[in-house]
Simulated assay, not measured.
Amino acid sequence: MLLSIALILLMGFSLGALLHRIGIPALLGMMAAGMILGPYGLDLFSPEILLISPELRKIALIVILLRGGLSLDLKDLKQVGRPAVLLCFLPALLEMITITLLAPKLFPISTLDAALMGAVVAAVSPAVVVPRMIEMIGNKIGTKKSIPQMILAGASVDDIFVIVVFTSLLTMSTGGETSIGTNVIHVPLAILSGSLIGLSIGWISTLVFRKISVRDTAKVLILLSISFLMVSFEDAFPFIPFSGLLAVMAMGVSMLQSNRNMASRIMGKFSKIWVAAEILLFVLVGGAIDFRYLSDAGLLSMILLAAGLLFRFIGVWLSTSGTILENKEKLFCAIAYMPKATVQAAIGAIPLAMGLEAGNLILTVAVLAIIITAPLGAVGIDRLQRRLLK
């Protein structure tokens, strides 16, 4: 396993730095490294790495959300108001509905399987979006109208919304005892409970750190441990409406509101951790891409993804309509909501592993979504932020 970790870090960093030098987002080089090293390339990953790959990706996701929470000022978010709330669910919902209605017409699958496919595809990638929004906040790009803050919050909750819907649909697809009414109630309850518990724990943690002298490095370890506990609780008790990932981000938000100086110092520590976590995440995401299914994808899958993205863009436009945002700023928001990678790599293969008939097709469309939208979205954010925003 040590050899695999060394190869992941060295090749991921090298290819990422190489592409960054020629103006291409480094994450593409990291994903390419994963494709080369992974089980569908040279097969240089040890079995142990493949076994813990989902957990390593989840750890990286937790680091992302903690950084996002520690950067998200609620005062800025309140200035945006309604659009920030709508961005949490409307674009993903429209994309899911589009795929649910269109997929059965293009492929021989049921409406329920199509809805499951829509839930897999609809999540935006926090690994692509959140670090870029944090960088934009630091560089004061678009911050006068709180555009990066709005996207950061919306994209993070978008993931939680989609994952909760996916879990509910998967239960229905595998014959679990659940009702539509239960699923409808589960989503807002999970978001509400995750937010409240995360905010409370963040406030309590700040009080404890004020009274007890602890080094910032120790604070980081404690916060990571609390985050692991919250996410593990959600995994252990899926029937309880609670979002561990949203609680992680809310904890960071609460700490920023309670003590900005402390939050800023902790944020600096997490930024250093992210250097290694980013490489691990995107190399492992690249390693999860199985090209064997791409030959079966064909033009129909492309049409399906294009239709989903079109209605996702419409959802972003509707969410930001009636605001002070100019059309070019709305266009940037739509582009920033395009990338898909982390969630699709994490859950795309689950329907296949659980023996669903449409599992192969769902995985194929998920892989295509990663390959097409992650590069386009990342390049779009990096290249257009200074052109479209003030």
Score class of each variant (00 low, 15 high):
residue 101 L to V: 15
residue 101 L to R: 10
residue 102 L to C: 09
residue 102 L to N: 11
residue 103 A to H: 07
residue 103 A to G: 07
residue 103 A to V: 08
residue 104 P to Y: 12
residue 104 P to A: 13
residue 104 P to C: 11
residue 104 P to E: 13
residue 105 K to Y: 14
residue 105 K to E: 12
residue 106 L to R: 10
residue 106 L to Q: 04
residue 106 L to G: 02
residue 107 F to T: 11
residue 108 P to D: 15
residue 108 P to E: 15
residue 109 I to K: 10
residue 110 S to D: 13
residue 111 T to C: 06
residue 111 T to P: 03
residue 112 L to D: 11
residue 113 D to S: 15
residue 113 D to G: 12
residue 114 A to N: 10
residue 114 A to C: 08
residue 115 A to F: 02
residue 116 L to K: 03
residue 116 L to G: 06
residue 116 L to N: 04
residue 117 M to W: 14
residue 118 G to T: 06
residue 118 G to N: 01
residue 118 G to H: 02
residue 118 G to K: 02
residue 118 G to L: 00
residue 118 G to R: 03
residue 119 A to M: 03
residue 119 A to V: 03
residue 119 A to H: 06
residue 120 V to G: 01
residue 120 V to H: 09
residue 120 V to Y: 09
residue 120 V to D: 10
residue 120 V to A: 12
residue 120 V to I: 10
residue 121 V to G: 00
residue 122 A to L: 10
residue 122 A to T: 00
residue 122 A to H: 04
residue 123 A to P: 08
residue 123 A to M: 12
residue 123 A to W: 03
residue 124 V to R: 10
residue 125 S to C: 05
residue 125 S to P: 05
residue 126 P to Y: 00
residue 126 P to V: 08
residue 126 P to R: 01
residue 126 P to H: 01
residue 127 A to V: 12
residue 127 A to Q: 10
residue 128 V to T: 14
residue 128 V to D: 08
residue 128 V to Q: 00
residue 129 V to S: 01
residue 130 V to A: 12
residue 130 V to C: 11
residue 130 V to R: 02
residue 131 P to A: 05
residue 131 P to E: 01
residue 131 P to G: 04
residue 132 R to V: 00
residue 132 R to G: 06
residue 132 R to T: 01
residue 133 M to H: 02
residue 133 M to G: 08
residue 134 I to M: 08
residue 134 I to K: 03
residue 134 I to N: 02
residue 135 E to S: 14
residue 135 E to T: 13
residue 135 E to F: 04
residue 135 E to A: 14
